[in-house]
Amino acid sequence: MSHDATNWAIKQRGLKPTTKIVLWHLCDRFNPDYGCFPSQDRLAHDCEISRSTLNDHLGQLEAVGLLRRVSRIDPVTKRQLPTRYILGFEPGFTPAKPTPCPESGHGHDAARKCSDAALDLAINAPAGALPCPESGHGSGARAVSDFCPEPCPENGQSRVRNPDTNLVREPLSKPVKEEEGAQAREAEFDRFFAELLGALGLDPAALPGWWQGWPARLHVRRWIDVLGLTEDRVIAVATASRRDHPEPPDGPKALDRSMARAAQREARAKAPAGAGAQHPDAQRRRKRDPSPRPSGDELAAFYAELVNSDRYLPANTISNTLRDAMLSRGLVTPERLRMRGVR
């Protein structure tokens, strides 16, 4: 892991969220001494996407000049090794410049080093033959795929499925509407986030590091989703905080205490009248006669639902006893616990 590499990834602008996550995980796997060459299975697992989707985003990163992929083949077995990813900040980096073949219009110049005879040999090679060490065509190119071992040299069939190929066409009205709704919500949040930065006196063109990227936006979303504050209330609290402090906060975490106090005040204001002025005897009777505590099954089911959801899970919420109770009842999986930060 390299902090310089991940910081470089966070500073890149104009990328889609998933594309930026792929770039961040690539940089997280970067070693200053040896470079970056994680397998596609590892990258897809880290990014929680399929390999075909991963290849799409890698192609986008290569197209905008943020990385260059270098295929490697074992000189002994002729099997394909994990791709070497050269990142944009590495010394001597030059972005890939694909040039289509003048005959068929497919591929790069580097992929056309094999002669026509070598390509014919790769296509017509008998089963068990080794692939061409330069182009990777032939029956031995099945090192990382379950697809046909003889990709066509004309269309350069990928070793993974094409995510745009949908053999069963279904109505797209609902997914399209959901995507449009998600885009509208994202645009509305962008407007709100820009208004928040203005209330805090921050320049969007020169934001501090802790205000950049999706981590800052996710932190701000928690004030709304977890604390229950409205966007107008968040802006009001931020404006009041800015009046009390001459310098803007260096990150959203600095406003957590102010947002929590505002949420508590709103909760007390919404409480029924007289709820906080009970007689001392009534309070003592309530302490002597507590309501029945939830059973172990109820506690395990409640926290399992929280772990299996995408809601915010504070650190140290799940104790070892509660973790073992959920696992013994089959309510969660060890993989999901690790993904949510529960050890």
Rank of each mutant, 00 (worst) to 15 (best):
A236S: 08
L172S: 10
P171S: 07
G138W: 03
D203W: 08
G201S: 03
R268V: 13
L306F: 08
G107H: 06
N124L: 09
L172F: 03
K113C: 05
R338W: 06
W211P: 00
E62Q: 12
A238E: 05
A263M: 10
A117K: 10
C101M: 06
H106W: 14
L58M: 04
E247H: 13
H25W: 08
F37S: 15
G14S: 13
H3C: 11
T333G: 06
R285I: 06
R217W: 14
P98E: 14
P126G: 07
K11Y: 14
G105W: 00
W24Y: 10
D256H: 12
A205C: 07
L197M: 13
A117T: 14
G341L: 02
L327S: 01
E178R: 14
P175Q: 01
P98C: 04
G92T: 13
W211K: 00
K11Q: 13
P38D: 11
R261F: 07
P314I: 01
L306C: 04
T83M: 07
V220M: 00
N320L: 03
A141W: 04
G201H: 05
C132Q: 11
R217P: 05
T83P: 02
A205Q: 15
R284H: 08
A194S: 13
M326V: 00
T239H: 12
R329C: 00
P153T: 03
L322Y: 02
L67W: 01
R68M: 05
I318W: 08
S145E: 05
E186A: 14
L306N: 04
W211S: 00
R338T: 05
E247N: 06
R161M: 09
R68V: 09
A118P: 05
G138I: 03
A240P: 02
A282R: 15
T99I: 15
G92N: 08
R336P: 02
G105N: 02
E134G: 02
A236L: 07
S2F: 04
D324R: 06
A300S: 09
E150M: 10
L58Y: 02
S173A: 11
V144W: 13
P100Y: 04
N308K: 08
A187I: 00
S291D: 07
F193L: 10
L58K: 02
G138P: 01
R311W: 08
P292R: 15
Y312P: 03
K174T: 04
L67T: 01
L61A: 09
F302H: 05
S295K: 10
F147L: 15
P38A: 12
K174R: 15
V176R: 08
